[in-house]
Design a protein around this nucleic acid. Structure first.
Lengths: 348, 348
DNA sequence: AAAATTTCCGTGCACGGTAACGGGAAATCA
DNA sequence: TGATTTCCCGTTACCGTGCACGGAAATTTT
């Protein structure tokens, strides 16, 4: 079609055989320096691009992409991310891409380490990685680079590495947007932030920047607003409800509530049994339970980043890079913040 | 890899040759009824799927997808849609898919008709179609069906046809959502709808349902709200500003403004020179000018459907259907309503 | 019954690339 | 100088399909 130049053309023009050309294309040696350069020159001039079909047909192997995620419990954020693997387009699957999931315990750095060695043993052609532990990830990434395995970050990323691309949400801005959704742009008097207790694992609080963005918005738009925090234990519903009761007994004037992680659904039973007119409740991520609460009106709006789509797009970008040698246009601009309300969530 | 069964296997099992098998696969006759059935039976049993690579390699032709859109002026909605063609993934392009754009004058049914005949002459393997004229589209679609050319609707669709898929926005619900964005969920006193004058062309008002959804929301949530309409001529800026001046002189209490098409940007100069605190302005579609106004704060929020993405996904769905024989999972559920504010538009 | 068609089917090459195999020439060694 | 090794490179057999070509068998025509 468009790309008429084949490996045979190059062979003819260089006076060599296609076997030799193939050897330089795959850098598998046994080629004299002179021949190597001659071939490279012609390839450059003609803009030769290998035919993917022929290559896949002959090679047959296809490629393997490892997806490394925290293990996702039922209904959790990471389960949603996991589901993205099943959603990769038929077109990239047709390109011979297989994909394998590796999970780790998000609270145990050593589990992550263990998983990383498993990944390296599987010798994938590319890795999609949701990193939680900075130090361990740095090491893993070095191993990957050494082996020349490209990798894509999902959800969060390390700053200064040579990753191929990053699919995630800008945390600070998402907090800012969240505040805008909560207030509707008008000044409010007070707001309650509900946070979860964190045991001191080695991972930093992933919602820290989001909270910062929220606070900054409030300072700019509602400087006199009082912002309170309470902490709950995700595994203790009764304690959670108790904490809410206590807070609102002491601060009956507060109405709006926000959570910066995906667990707003933990508050739903309490919210349902304590309805307040004009209360706005804003959370993050389109977990099934969150969406259900949104539809019922218990939650006002969700800021979603669709981890499933992120994983899907990460795999696709990686596949294009590996199979087609097409680099993604930008490294970091694949970031979404979608506003969900009960009126558009059905079409999401 | 996974699909080990080849055309040769079938040939061997049926005692025929691969030439014959190929003939039944492509229905090009010259096969006895007995052989035909024998082959079909084995194909069924083994679940034979042709190897896309080999097929593309041997056939070479690839496929042609025609994209039929209204011609888009600079900065218009349809120009945005057009840009989606350039955004189709490298993976589907690698599948040998070429794409050709056909445009028509959105105000002239005969122009559409003319374009349709051109499309038929080009003999594409699939058609992406943004239909505006109901009658002419019905006829065109019949022609396509007769030739067995699959087609996908974009932006709007005909109700009862055998289209492969539809990518668009649910109009009624978008109006409903729009009202929710405008009011923030609270009752308001009055709102101004700005509409464009329509010459009596054969196409119906495409925003009619959207307006209906808006009105219904207002009736339910702000029953006492007064809703006014004014009409402007898109080609007459001064007249537009004059109309706005007149209206607001007579109704100084009205603050919020909404438009149901993509032309909210027409009001921007007037809005900028007549700032009102607490005024909410809501429009549709992420045209560059609209987005710019959103960033400056002149427009409060936009409901966007990303026509470019719709076209892109339509092409991809069609390509998968043609090349890989994979039907899209659902016909109609590819509909988006994205809420854009100045705080998330940068990451859109 | 022989000739002329028609129907049906097998053979073989092409598509572009991969990789094993083997061999000629140069370099090293005996 | 002859034998052996090393370095390069050409040859060749695929990968799974598409399709043109030609021929055998079945059918019709004279």
């Amino acid at each position: 079609m468009e790309n008429k130049v084949t490996i045979n053309d190059i062979a003819r023009l260089t006076g060599l055989s296609k076997g030799t050309v193939d050897r330089v294309l795959h850098k598998r040696g046994e080629v004299s320096k002179k021949s190597y350069e001659k071939v490279m020159k012609v390839i450059e001039e003609l803009g030769y691009k290998p035919n993917v079909f022929a290559s896949l047909l002959a090679g047959g192997k296809g490629c393997l992409i490892a997806v490394v995620l925290p293990s996702g419990e039922k209904g959790s954020y990471w389960e949603l991310a996991e589901s993205g693997i099943a959603k990769v387009g038929a077109d990239v699957e047709a390109l011979g891409v297989r994909t394998q999931l590796f999970t780790y315990d998000q609270y145990k750095p050593e589990s992550f380490h263990q998983t990383c060695t498993e990944v390296l043993e599987a010798a994938p052609d590319g890795v999609v990685l949701a990193p939680l532990f900075k130090e361990e990830t740095s090491q893993f990434v070095l191993d990957l680079e050494e082996k020349g395995i490209p990798y894509v970050f999902v959800d969060s990323r390390l700053e200064s590495e040579h990753y191929l691309a990053y699919f995630g949400m800008p945390m600070y801005q998402s907090g800012y947007l969240c505040a805008d959704q909560l207030t509707g742009g008008f000044a409010i008097g007070s707001v309650l932030i509900v946070r979860v207790l964190r045991d001191k694992s080695r991972q930093a609080d992933p919602t820290k920047n989001r909270r910062a963005g929220f606070i900054d918005y409030m300072l700019e738009h509602s400087p006199e607003c009082s912002v309170s925090n309470i902490f709950i234990d995700p595994n203790d519903p009764d304690g959670t409800y108790q904490a809410l009761d206590n807070y609102f007994k002491a601060h009956p004037e507060t109405r709006h509530i926000v959570m910066f992680n995906s667990r707003i659904h933990l508050l739903v039973p309490w919210l349902s049994s304590h309805p307040v007119k004009g209360r706005r409740v804003v959370g993050f991520d389109n977990l099934p339970e969150n969406v259900a609460a949104l539809k019922r009106g218990t939650v006002s709006s969700l800021i979603a980043q669709r981890p499933d789509v992120q994983v899907k797009r990460a795999i696709e970008a990686l596949a294009e890079a590996i199979v087609l040698q097409k680099l993604p246009p930008q490294k970091d601009s694949f970031m979404h913040m979608d506003i969900l309300t009960r009126y558009n969530v059905d079409y999401y």
